[in-house]
Write a protein that binds this DNA or RNA. Structure first.
Lengths: 159, 159
DNA sequence: AATAAAAATGAATTTTATTCTACATTATAA
DNA sequence: TTATAATGTAGAATAAAATTCATTTTTATT
């Protein structure tokens, strides 16, 4: 599948993305070896990818259990103003424990991903934070029992 | 809130996690400056955090639109064998475009996060891949219209 | 307080990042 | 096709950072 957009990435750029998605701390030297290029050339490309907002950041992935965040939940909500739901969404986005906020099509209006210590802290979050968010008509909370897969790496196509 | 688990992280470890979550490519020198420590001491701690699986990886965050992945969807499914659903879940996890697979409590059994190029490729995915997964009774696909927030950083508590 | 274990220091060494200039490649237009 | 501009790459030089290690300090435990 050929990429047709204004980011104009060639196969080397895509290879860089593939490698750095899995190992953001790879050195330029190792990147250069893997791509059969010279380090300075790779460095320029990486900087360009950052400037073009193709690479939007580098994150260490932290084990949630290690920092006592053992509960994951998805919360879907209906809004009373479905055509101007952006205030609601941005208020939801301000809540630190909220990892994701999506405006969705279908029965509900928002889908929110939340991580807390336990069910008690989720309850507190709903009571103290979500209750203040405007225009919410209904809330449906789905508790995650087990996460089988959770990756942010994208499937990056060939050329 | 005091962390009580077998990872035994002190406030310096937590500070490292906070910094590296947001900037995985920060140098040891800069980490050391921020923590008022010496680079070699920081390096040891980071390696220990990796070994203990507190830090589970480093990822470059790639802009999905740049690699032509403009469609995000959540798919929830019912299973015919709700108490041995792990085969189903692990089959779902094998599909590359599937970013997340969660076993959930509630009406449905699985919640899956999927990223594709467009609705046509989502359709193809459902037809070609999901149809092969065993024990699926029902499928409900929710299309994301707009993502307002999407971060993998965790809220790391104080000491 | 004594001991053991863990962590931090600071200097030395190795490795890497970064800069810069020259050269090559590609695309564009005459 | 040929000239020209623009962009990308190579490779060496330099600056900066990572890494190692022996020693010292701190912390926890008895």
């Amino acid at each position: 599948m050929v990429i047709e957009n204004n980011f104009s990435l060639d196969h080397i750029d895509l290879a860089i993305l593939r490698l750095m998605q899995d190992n953001a701390r790879i050195s330029n030297v190792d990147l250069a070896k893997a791509l059969d290029l010279v380090p300075s050339a790779v460095l320029e490309r990486v900087k360009k990818l950052e400037k073009k907002n193709v690479i939007t950041g580098y994150n260490a992935k932290v084990n949630p259990a290690a920092v006592d965040l053992k509960l994951l939940a998805f919360i879907s909500m209906k809004s009373s103003q479905s055509f101007s739901c952006n205030d609601t969404a941005s208020e939801l986005a301000k809540i630190p424990d909220v990892q994701e906020v999506h405006v969705i099509a279908g029965d509900d209006c928002f889908l929110v991903k939340v991580r807390t210590t336990d069910s008690a802290s989720l309850m507190a979050l709903l009571r103290d934070e979500f209750s203040k968010v405007p225009n919410i008509l209904s809330v449906k909370t789905t508790i995650v029992l087990e996460t089988v897969k959770e990756q942010q790496q994208l499937v990056i196509p060939q050329k």
